[in-house]
């Protein structure tokens, strides 16, 4: 929106006499741009693009780690990918996890933000509480939940106090998936909540006043004013949350190791198993390529969707 302004050449440099003619203010500024972005660009090249390229390269090989064999096999790994009997289940678990996580995370974040946006004493205390898991080490948080979710753990202990008998959370296929999702949502929902809260507080109050006069109810106001006004935030948080949901690893490793059965074996975990446990780096690389493709497609779709429902994209 304001980017164009930086183009205007400042007068000062232009009046310096001893410069060769090609060393214009414009070129000077270009150089500055490259120098400023340089470390990040270099980092992207070395730590992102190069390893990504290597990963593609590996995916066309059979790599026997123990014997030190590395053999070009063409598209063999990709054929195996298409025929892999475990893959549909893995993709199903991935979809269930991601959909559950994104839906629960965004809706809970929005509800919490709306509650905290009310004029109430003590909202700062609650804001701190809801945000605090973000500051707890991920592995510590997950280890604690593993204790709590055991059959004889804290959650069922709490339930037994009120006379209910809880299931064996991490041993049932549905409850294990639900548990992994909820643990992850509780850990990170505070971040999205804070972003939503900021967006809510940025909605001009006049809009609400005008609509109150028009006699609109609370729900109509929310749907007609609040949602459109905070839609850019929803887009950004949903992109970050979707991408994040496809990267969950430590939580699954600590809580369920992909079980019971293979019910919580999501794509990243399957990839990790193949590469680091089954020592099959070639196939692991192929799964990485698949994961990357999925993330890319989802992000592009979300980005395209913004035209439809994000109202004030300028």
């Amino acid at each position: 929106m304001t980017e164009a302004d930086t183009e205007t050449a400042p007068g000062r440099e232009a009046s310096r006499p001893a410069r060769p003619s090609w060393w214009t203010a414009r070129r000077r500024d270009n150089l500055a741009g490259f120098l400023f972005a340089g470390p990040q660009l270099a980092g992207t090249l070395v730590f992102v693009l190069l390893p990504l390229g290597l990963m593609f390269w590996y995916s066309f090989h059979e790599w026997n780690v123990l014997a030190g064999g590395f053999r070009f096999t063409g598209a063999e790994n990709y054929e195996r990918l298409v025929q892999d009997p475990a893959l549909p289940g893995v993709l199903g678990a991935t979809a269930a996890f991601s959909v559950g996580l994104v839906a629960l995370n965004l809706s809970l974040a929005l509800v919490l933000a709306i509650l905290l946006d009310q004029k109430l004493r003590g909202t700062i205390l609650f804001r701190t509480i809801f945000f605090s898991p973000v500051a707890v080490t991920l592995v510590a948080w997950t280890i604690v939940w593993r204790f709590l979710l055991q059959d004889d753990g804290g959650i069922n202990g709490l339930l037994s106090v009120v006379g209910a008998e809880g299931p064996n959370w991490l041993r049932g296929e549905t409850t294990a998936m639900a548990a992994v999702i909820v643990v992850q949502v509780l850990k990170n929902v505070g971040l999205n909540m804070v972003l939503f809260l900021a967006a809510l507080q940025g909605v001009p109050k006049e809009l609400y006043e005008a609509s109150t006069i028009d006699g609109a109810g609370a729900w109509t106001r929310f749907r007609r004013i609040t949602m459109p006004m905070i839609s850019p935030t929803i887009l950004l948080t949903s992109i970050i949350t979707v991408v994040g949901s496809l990267q969950v690893f430590a939580q699954i490793d600590v809580l369920t190791k992909g079980g019971p059965g293979t019910s919580t074996t999501v794509l990243v975990y399957y990839l990790y198993q193949n590469a680091f446990q089954f020592h099959d780096f070639g196939y692991g690389a192929t799964l990485s390529v698949l994961l990357f493709a999925i993330v890319l497609v989802l992000t592009v779709i979300q980005w395209q969707m913004r035209r439809k429902w994000v109202v004030h994209e300028d």
């Binding site: 992102v48 991408v243 994961l291 993330v295």
Partner: peptide, 15 residues
């Protein structure tokens, strides 16, 4: 650069 945002670290850990 934004591509980096889309890559889980598991993908590139071996290279």
């Amino acid at each position: 650069v934004l591509v980096g945002l889309l890559i889980p670290s598991e993908v590139t850990i071996v290279p």
